[in-house]
Design a protein around this nucleic acid. Structure first.
Length: 836
RNA sequence: GGCGGAGUGGCGGAAUUGGCAGACGCAGCAGACUCAAAAUCUGCCGUACUUCACUGUGCGUGUGGGUUCAAGUCCCACCUCCGCCACCA
């Protein structure tokens, strides 16, 4: 009888067809043991799955299926964030309306998700481009506006001359447009809407350490800390000598203020503009323009003396006021004090312009019994040892903390203590205080594009900016829009949309023509999953509180400082609106690694190194494809794409298929208890291994390796297996494969005469007694070097192990004529004989 | 420059709590089957030396030190790569 062939196409298409007709297949229904899994899904701009998506979803899918089998009620929904600039650009390119393009895009994505056998709850599906969804973006906008968290101001925005359009900050890569990598982005001033994420900066930072620490990867937390960029320091007023006007500077090193030899203002600084003469203002303009063109990396220090002086409030000393191109107007106060002896940048500036370099901090040598951060050097290397000194630095600034000197009444203090005392002093005298500065800026959400949520605001000649009344939501996007791709908001060209009556006075007025950043949509989509059809509210609070926070969020690290900060911000706003009780969206975050192309960089269309999952599925099958992306390495690591390795997982599935199908009805002629015992032992060891991997660390590559070992062992003992053993092994094999390869697992399950979706079956249990090896190979070392292995029964006593090991003929030559000083015995693990 | 992560065979990687380094797979080599090939099955597969003996010894997890009976794993210093931030005061 010929062996049955593993024909993936036949199997997978059969099950795809059956699953497609069951919208409730993956619906959660047990309200007690619940888990909420969300796999981040951003399918634009290509409208097709790529290998990154496949890997991402294979991970989430394996976890959800395992949790189902463990009896949990898993909510595992899906959303479509097909909005935004990429959708609009793709649609323009295809000469389609974005909305039509997106509808076909989503349909295609769904088809591919089905084809890959991914499980999700269709009943919770959300598409952010639908008015039913984006209505609530507008609702949130109004709530933000009411609470003073939304405001409008003129600001500099990024402009790509090639695209002729505005770009979001996140779409600027190394100063260039993300779509035109050699075209530098220009700055233009435009009226923009902002959301006040800075109001939550402190809490966003605090909760990183409080609430997220254990459940989020350190990599992401560190990026968010960087991004928020909290700086503790001081604000100090230097008064302009001639006018008495205060120049407020921000510094983290107020302990060095007696070494300040000038004050430097950003060229844009209003006080600088007042102090400068015409020539000086021209110079300032030149500095500003030069900075716009040059990348910040290669900026050469430049500046000019204003001709005015300011008074150091601590020392009473008179110092010159300069402008400098390296001082930024939009960080801190736009003004600094320069301490060339103790700051690299100030040192450069001072050497360029011949300013005084005056040391006021004595460095501490390594080895002094002070906190590490006070030391001048952290290593024992004598070359690097900095001798305590107050010499004027000639090559570089001494930027470490130390002991203050020549600092009036604050001399002789460790830097930290000096900062504390000096802050206190400034506050008492009223010329300064301790201050905290954040790097994070308010979130500019205006986009001059068509394909986004219209901002629900109306501009009235008489009343100014007026919000659209809540009852008039949603403000829908008009359909009859002409696309020029020229960067003016297309909405502004549609009179039916733009012309409206003022809700306050009834006069003719104009709608806001900007739309919202699409990161608004993705900031809260996972809340809508709980209640996707709600017409009265974004979602029902009770439903959200039942599921939130998300037990497990799975996504790429690329969104660490964008989506993952925005959604944390949104969660806090919603909590303050009384909509939810959780302060953080997700208790646990898992960031899967990227799939890397042959050149080692991330797979992307522009690099031409993409692999189409459709091709892979056609050639090897969806199961093989999924197994391959999970088997390559641990899922949090980047996966190098080496297609020649696909054969391994494919061969493995063929071996599984052959083993199960040819043993379904086989009546063994020569059953052998020894074969049964060995096979069952391996089975139970494998169940244990796979279960522990799922429970503890999600290293699916080692789980799959264990399954491969199992099938290898089963082949070795196949002839001797009894019917009873086979009846235990075959179904368990199907169950163990179910999280990774749902099609083949489901089909084998059916062939074994069982019914019901395989992922609804209980996960197999292992028996420690059956998994236990009866003899152990214990390594014997002499002085830590492996000399032999001895076979002993499990649980052999320490004394016996010691005796057997020393008597071993392979060990003898190494201990002969020497004194055995000590014998280390780790029962059931190892023996180490120490000789002299 | 600051912060975070990583460095193990020809390749992807394993070693979960300090306890046999290289599981599992790819590629490669040899053999069986075959007219032949594919597929399948079996064996070998870090490195140097050694042996008639599939025997044995040494070396080996980026580098240099250290702790320990024992280190890929812990400590100190350094090198390299990746990511994020960056004239952020």
């Amino acid at each position: 009888m010929p062996e049955s062939i593993y024909d993936h196409n036949q199997i997978e298409l059969k099950w795809e067809e059956r699953w497609k007709n069951d919208p409730d297949l993956y619906r959660a229904n047990n309200p007690t043991a619940k888990k909420y899994y969300v796999v981040e899904m951003f399918p634009y701009p290509s409208g097709r799955l790529h290998m990154g998506h496949v890997r991402n979803y294979s991970i989430g899918d394996a976890l959800a299926r395992y949790m189902w089998m463990r009896g949990y009620n898993v909510k595992h929904p899906i959303g479509w964030d097909a909005f935004g600039l990429p959708a609009e650009n793709a649609a323009i390119k295809r000469n389609m309306h974005p909305r039509d393009w997106t509808v076909s895009n989503i349909a295609e994505m769904k088809r591919q998700m089905h084809r890959m056998g991914f499980a999700y709850d269709w009943n919770s599906e959300v598409a952010t481009c639908e008015p039913e969804y984006y209505k609530w973006n507008q609702w949130f906008f109004l709530k933000m506006y009411e609470r003073g968290l939304a405001y409008r101001k003129k600001a500099m925005v990024n402009w790509c001359p090639e695209c002729a359009t505005v770009l979001a900050n996140e779409q600027v890569v190394d100063g260039c447009c993300w779509r035109h990598e050699t075209t530098p982005v220009e700055q233009r001033a435009l009226e923009q809407w902002f959301w006040k994420i800075t109001a939550y900066a402190d809490e966003l930072l605090r909760d990183i350490d409080d609430k997220l620490q254990s459940g989020w990867p350190e990599r992401v937390l560190s990026m968010q800390r960087n991004w928020i960029g909290r700086s503790e320091g001081s604000e100090v007023d230097f008064k302009v000598e001639s006018t008495g006007e205060a120049i407020r500077v921000f510094t983290t090193r107020v302990d060095t203020i007696y070494g300040a030899t000038c004050v430097i203002l950003a060229p844009e600084h209003p006080i600088a503009q007042k102090l400068l003469d015409d020539a000086g203002r021209a110079k300032a303009k030149q500095l500003i323009d030069a900075r716009k063109q040059q990348g910040p990396g290669d900026l050469i220090k430049d500046g000019a003396f204003t001709g005015a002086y300011a008074i150091n409030p601590y020392s009473g000393e008179k110092v010159p006021i300069w402008i400098g191109n390296f001082v930024l107007m939009d960080y801190g106060t736009g003004a600094i004090m320069a301490v060339p002896a103790h700051d690299e940048r100030d040192f450069d500036f001072a050497t360029t312009f011949g300013l005084e370099i005056r040391p006021v901090i004595r460095a501490l040598p390594y080895g002094v019994n002070v906190k590490k951060e006070y030391r001048a050097s952290s290593g024992p290397d004598p070359e690097r040892l900095i001798v305590p000194t107050l010499e004027t630095p000639s090559k570089a600034a001494m930027t470490d903390d130390g002991i203050t000197e020549k600092s009036g009444e604050f001399s002789g203090l460790p830097s930290e203590e000096a900062r504390r005392k000096m802050n206190q002093f400034a506050e008492e005298k009223g010329f300064g205080k301790a201050a905290i500065t954040f790097r994070i800026k308010d979130w500019g959400i205006s986009r001059q594009r068509y394909w986004g949520t219209p901002i629900p605001m109306i501009h009235c000649q008489k009343c100014g900016v007026v919000p659209v009344p809540e009852k008039d939501l949603p403000v829908e996007l008009p359909y009859n829009v002409k696309f020029t791709g020229k960067g003016r908001s297309p909405l502004a060209e549609v009179p039916e949309f733009m012309n409206v009556k003022c809700p306050t006075c009834g006069a003719d007025a104009q709608r806001e023509s900007d739309t919202m950043d699409t990161f608004v949509d993705s900031s809260w989509y996972f809340y809508r999953y709980c209640d996707p059809k709600n017409n009265a509210l974004p979602f029902d609070s009770a439903a959200a509180n039942q599921w939130f926070p998300i037990d497990q969020y799975i996504g790429g690290v690329t969104h660490a400082i964008l989506h993952l900060i925005y959604s944390r911000f949104f969660t806090k706003v919603m909590r303050d609106l009384g909509m939810i009780t959780n302060a953080e969206p997700a208790a646990n975050l898992f960031t899967q690694g990227m799939v890397l192309g042959s050149d080692g960089s991330a797979m992307s269309k522009s690099k031409g190194n993409v692999v189409d999952p459709e091709d892979m599925v056609g050639k090897y099958g969806a199961d093989t494809c999924r197994l391959f992306v999970l088997f390559a390495n641990a899922p949090e690591k980047d996966m190098p794409w080496i297609e020649s390795s696909v054969g391994g997982p494919r061969r493995f599935l063929e071996r599984v298929w052959r083993f199960v199908t040819r043993n379904i009805d086989r009546q063994p002629e020569t059953p052998n208890p020894e074969a049964d015992r060995k096979a069952l032992r391996k089975l139970h060891q494998t169940i244990r291994k796979v279960t522990e991997d799922f429970d503890n660390r999600w290293h699916f590559n080692t789980s799959i390796a264990a399954l491969m070992e199992l099938i290898n062992e089963l082949y070795d003992h196949e002839a001797g297996l009894s019917r009873a053993a086979l009846d235990q092994i075959l179904p368990d094999l199907a169950l163990l494969l179910a999280p990774f390869t749902p099609f083949i697992a489901e089909d084998l399950w059916e062939q074994l005469g069982r019914t019901g979706p395989v992922f609804r079956q209980p996960w197999p249990k292992w028996d420690d007694a059956l998994a236990q090896e009866d003899t152990l190979e214990i390594p014997v070392q002499v002085n830590g070097k492996l000399r032999t292995r001895i076979a002993v029964p499990l649980g052999t006593s320490q004394a016996d192990l010691e005796k057997i090991a020393q008597a071993d003929p392979k060990v003898q030559p190494f201990i002969e004529g020497k004194t055995v000083a000590k014998v280390i015995v780790v029962p059931d693990k190892l023996v180490n004989i120490v000789v002299k």
